[in-house]
């Protein structure tokens, strides 16, 4: 399995450098926790890792090759869970999930696996309009299990989740890591992942930005 790493990363928000000289390295089965105060750039770093934005300087590489060179390949091996759940109220739970599963090449079985992984089986037919925030969050997380990928990028995944759902998430991450998958999670809440490494963005903050 490959290594996912970055070095000399700089991220600018408007004119201000949010962080500089940031490096990270994730191997198969690893979990990396990003933590730091608000505005330290956790979300920005995750979006750089997903390839949604390009770093102001520095490089992110998968197996040594810059992710920008093979954008489509990087998209295929990455699942990104942002702050927003990407759930369409007009569609039912299963319609939402099977769209994303099919889009990433997973079949109907994938969608079903996603539902069971996050306890949404009973809600399959329900229109997403009636879901609570926690249920919507679980539907977003179900995309991870519905269409497997090597790299999971998650931004504050535990927001609005109840205790049982957090346990389901931890189990899913453990299973993912067991198969050699990687996970990078931005969070300020200690979610008790054993053997997870910590990256504090404050070490790379640019204190006296221009």
């Amino acid at each position: 399995m490959a290594r996912f790493g970055g070095d000399g990363l700089e991220c600018a928000r408007g004119e201000r450098l949010v962080f500089a000289g940031l490096g990270f390295d994730v191997g198969p089965g690893d979990a990396l926790l990003l933590e730091g105060r608000n505005g330290s750039g956790k979300t920005s770093l995750l979006r750089l890792m997903a390839g949604l934005a390009r770093p102001a300087a520095g490089r992110i590489a998968w197996d040594g090759a810059d992710i920008g060179d093979d954008a489509e390949g990087h998209r295929a091996r990455t699942r990104y869970i942002g702050h927003l759940d990407a759930v369409k109220p007009q569609l039912s739970v299963i319609e939402n999930l099977s769209f994303w599963a099919a889009l990433h090449g997973g079949g109907a079985a994938g969608a079903q696996a996603g539902l069971t992984a996050f306890g949404l089986d009973t809600l399959a037919r329900a229109p997403a309009r009636y879901l609570s925030a926690g249920q919507r969050r679980r539907l977003a997380l179900a995309r991870l299990a519905a269409a497997p990928a090597a790299l999971w990028l998650m931004d504050e995944p535990t927001i609005a989740l109840d205790r049982a759902s957090i346990a389901a998430l931890i189990a899913a991450i453990a299973a993912h890591r067991a198969t050699g998958g990687m996970a990078v999670i931005a969070t300020n809440v200690d979610i008790g992942l054993d053997g997870a490494r910590l990256l504090s963005l404050e070490d790379f903050a640019v204190a006296d930005g221009p």
Binding site: G14, E15, R16, D208, G209, P210
Partner: peptide, 8 residues
């Protein structure tokens, strides 16, 4: 520059 300094 002024805006960047204010944000900083």
């Amino acid at each position: 520059r002024a805006r960047a300094m204010a944000m900083a």
